[in-house]
Nucleic acid binder design. Structure first.
Lengths: 329, 329
DNA sequence: GTGAAAGCGCTAACAG
DNA sequence: CTGTTAGCGCTTTCAC
């Protein structure tokens, strides 16, 4: 910038003004400066610009639990859209469901002076973020609430979704319902389980521990769990799957056996409508989840001082698949 | 940092040394400094640290064409893994197949002083990046090559994949093969089309323009294209789909009609194995694509001076789906 | 081992 | 309208 200034025969500050498109600069000087910029191959250093106190880096961080799950991808896509509309970039990172990684990532991003952080929390204790929040980093949690920390959270109605899913199964005559959940250390899984049990209890159905498998991470885990439950003396006639991965695995195993078993899953996935057999899915508006979180984050970045709130988005039951059954030749 | 120094009764530089874990500092001073840091709630400003010339921001940028497509998600996931192993963060952004957005994003990221850039190019002219590369930003293109610029590119063997796909269809007796391609302004689509035509020509089959639809962006576009081709007087008995989206749409339409039509698609997708009818897919190792690109980028960041090269990853034909047909009750 | 001074590239504040 | 001065938070000389 110094070089440009001397080459153009103006002061540093004038170059700065030109680069920042300040309107009150003489046309001639502007042209001269641009000529020197081109000639010298000058590039503005955005990082130095954001160094001056108070200035924003115009970056937000997004920490999800698993980049390759389409649920988080859709979320990220919605966040990115809101950010781009505001001229912010998104640094995306994945905690892989590991609290230590989450912590390291969050602190790293804060060191990089992000203006805000959207986190799908994995850790059981987020007090480590308190200091950062006190220093002015906006933090919004999404899909799961924080613990040990008062912060905004955008969630879906996990209990309600599970409740109505099980209610529907019961209405269809099912009384033995297998429950496939990922690790119960995950908030959403505990909530969904609670909702399911609620509905069972309301119908006067005993909670049989043999019909719950947790720690189901992958489609293969789900297939194994389904297999062992179907081999019980008194097997389930329906399954509730805690997330899209387990839904896929459960479907595979059920079809493999040719068994006539009802399946309700959580979290929609691309192609669910192509499934050859009817599946009911507890659908939430993932894009809205991301949009809400990003909007709340920017409200905070803009200085919103209101008390942090939890926000619950509704779910609904949707019937997917099945129609293609008629077709294949 | 100044405050910490005076609180601890040491110089600025000593604090800097402690924060950066320089070993040659007196234990007592280290403890004192840490105490003051905790007391004052000091946080290191990573951005200021990277301001000094030559210092790296330890960030790379990743620009893909569409965040919500699982193909790019897998790619991104692989890139992120390599980056994390090196302590780099990834800024991810999507060009939405718009050259202008791509350009703006790339320049923005360069202004943010990323050490390198991995780009799935959309634009037809990447000379705008030459200046940045001259200034030391490493750039690697992936999935598609750059134009107007000499740079590393990691690609898959699109022509070869399309060639063997069509060859297989011909071997199975098909002579009328419908081609569904996204916009032919996209490199991969031109290559795949060329490979397909090659195989047709080699078998002495005339290239019928009625059997090509391009500009197929979405599953619905694909379904429409399939519909109109199947309504031809002399309809195709097979389809080659240029990407996973069009494969999905083509499958839908074919099943809807109950038609007995062979389908070969490009790019695998999660759940393809759950499909109720056999589909052949031209599969490439997407994770390897991302890994290779990231590794080459870090080689460049580390100062590798060798001539930029193009790298071609192989594809293979895989049969997916079909097995479930037996099962549904 | 430790510290003082200079400066990274830029911008805010105030003059001129 | 333009230039000068100071300083963001840190690190790097180079003395002590």
């Amino acid at each position: 910038m110094n070089d440009v200034a001397s080459d153009a025969g103006v002061s540093l500050k004038t170059v700065s003004r030109v680069v920042n498109a300040v309107p009150t600069v003489d046309r001639d000087l502007v042209d001269k400066v641009f000529a020197s910029i081109k000639k010298l191959g000058y590039r503005r250093n955005g990082i130095a610009a954001s160094l001056r106190a108070g200035s924003e880096t115009r970056m937000i961080g997004l920490i999800t639990a698993d980049v390759s799950n389409s649920f988080y991808t859709e979320l990220a896509s919605a966040v990115a859209k809101v950010a781009r509309a505001r001229g912010f970039q998104v640094i995306m990172a994945s905690s892989e469901e590991d609290p230590e990684i989450e912590r390291a990532l969050a602190l790293d991003l804060c060191q990089r002076q992000v203006s805000g952080l959207i986190v799908v929390p994995t850790s059981a204790d987020h007090r480590y973020l308190q200091a950062e929040m006190d220093l002015g980093v906006a933090v919004v949690f999404v899909d799961r609430p924080a613990s040990g920390l008062t912060a905004d959270a955008i969630l879906i109605d996990n209990q309600g979704g599970a409740h109505s899913a099980v209610e529907r199964l019961i209405a269809n005559g099912h009384r033995r319902i297998g429950l496939l959940m990922d690790s119960l250390s995950i908030y959403t899984m505990r909530e969904r389980l609670a909702g399911a049990r609620d509905a069972l209890a309301a119908a006067g159905i005993d909670d049989d521990p043999a019909l719950l498998v947790d720690g189901v991470h992958s489609p293969d885990d789900a297939a194994n769990a389904v297999r062992s439950m179907l081999d019980l003396a008194d097997p389930p006639t329906a399954f509730l799957c805690g997330n899209n991965r387990s839904t896929i695995g459960a479907l595979e195993e059920v079809w493999r056996r040719g068994a006539s078993i009802a399946i309700v899953g959580f979290d929609d996935f691309e192609m669910s409508r192509l499934l050859p057999q009817p599946v009911t899915i507890v659908v939430s508006d993932t894009a809205a989840l991301g949009t809400r979180a990003a909007e709340r984050l920017f409200d905070r970045i803009d200085g919103l001082a209101a008390e942090p709130t939890g926000h619950l988005l509704p779910t609904r039951l949707v019937d997917r698949g099945g129609s293609r059954l008629l077709a294949p030749s």
